[in-house]
Design a protein around this nucleic acid. Structure first.
Lengths: 225, 225
DNA sequence: GACTATCTTTAGGCATGCCATAATCTCAAG
DNA sequence: CTTGAGATTATGGCATGCCTAAAGATAGTC
């Protein structure tokens, strides 16, 4: 495949995933610091690993200016992401793993899932394109649906949109919303918004919910098409 | 649980599994050589790892006289074995993984399966007691059904018994037998046996099959109750 | 009772992987 | 051109798990 000389370890996969995710957010090269913080290591450690990733030709590294995934690196990141999200969905729907545990389990298993099993799971699930958090599942060929989203928090009164996802590292939030009948895919209208960074009054169908704080910042909304 | 000081790595689990399996076969302490051969490492390496296992109090080690699992070690081995066999069964029945692949997949995943997932899988499967190879699946509490078995190869003309299992590291054999309608649980009678370590003529129901060589050595038979 | 073949153990190393601290260097903004 | 934030190197630690080579123990044989 893409691995040229050295083995791709779990740590390498995690770095690739983290870089991918940071690249998505901010639209430029990822700083060593950001990467280190994200992964909970020191900047020095991240710097060292970045060199390895560069040797593996998974990233290009402009010293002092950040890293960027190469096509191969991106492929790797998406591969792992696909594993992760398929696993989450599979664990939840086929095995009944509670929502607040799937992320954690998937985080481990994603590194040990063979391509063959991945394929069987995908088929079993009917080749899904989104996981239950609303996150898109990368396709086998490494393409991802990339519709732009905004934080719910950033909308204004009168705005319309569709709630599409919430960070999968916040399972309690997903549960909180699910308990209230709100799940990814739901259309919404901002009825009102309190000033001073206050909560939003959001209508889902007939129900109006008040959403604010970290929750409103974690929820991603797609503009009405 | 039992782990006292150091982490239980995959390698440690593999050693425990191997020791358990060798203890089952020959009924005495396991020699370093046997262990090394089984695991495909040098005797020196095995010796080193044995020391570590002893420090973890998973085995008792009488230098020059072999190792034996402690209760904690046995528990660990059975835990991993339970993972392995549940996974094999699960992968085959729920995900349609071909028989000649389940062992390999399970060998990897057994080390990363959480207790919680194990439990869910077991329930999903209806708390099975045997995997498709006929191997007993250790119970949650670490007990295993332990009926003595003999190699088919060791039976004589006139003997009766029940084919109960075949090594799970020989998937082709299982398939070969399955293709001929022979699976674990089948009652059998030895119709005849060719001398000079020759093949056996074994009747399953109305069909008589000729079985010899490595196959007859791998097949385990339980004496008629 | 010594010898010998076989098995086992130590000693010493090596490769990998990943992280940390401390010190140095680079960049870009002022 | 200075300075501070950020990035990088240098060095080291610690762990795993394997190896080879050499020495040690055991048990069976003469």
């Amino acid at each position: 495949m893409e691995a040229t000389t050295a083995p791709v370890t779990s740590a390498v996969e995690d770095y690739a995933k983290a870089i991918y995710s940071l690249e998505e957010r901010r639209q430029r090269a990822v700083s060593t610091n950001a990467l280190a913080e994200r992964l909970g290591v020191t900047a020095a450690s991240a710097s060292g690993m970045v060199r390895k990733l560069a040797e593996l030709e998974l990233v290009t590294h402009a010293p002092y200016h950040g890293v960027q995934l190469t096509p191969a690196g991106r492929r790797l990141a998406l591969e792992v992401l696909r594993h992760h999200r398929l696993l989450e969905l599979y664990l939840a729907t086929s095995l009944g793993v509670p929502w607040d545990r799937v992320h954690e389990e998937a985080e481990v298993l994603e590194h040990h899932l063979s391509e063959e099993l991945e394929e069987l799971i995908a088929v079993k699930l009917g080749d899904p394109t989104h996981d239950p958090h609303g996150d898109p599942i990368p396709a086998r060929d490494g393409t991802v649906e990339a519709r732009p989203t905004r934080a719910l928090h950033a909308l204004e009164a009168g705005d319309r949109g569709r709630f599409v996802r919430i960070s999968d590292s916040e399972p309690e939030m997903l549960r909180y919303l699910a308990d209230r009948g709100i799940s990814p895919g739901a259309d919404l209208v901002i009825e009102d918004k309190q000033p001073f960074d206050g909560p939003l009054f959001v209508r889902f169908g007939t129900e109006v919910h008040v959403l604010g704080g970290a929750l409103a910042r974690a929820m991603r909304v797609e503009e009405e098409a």
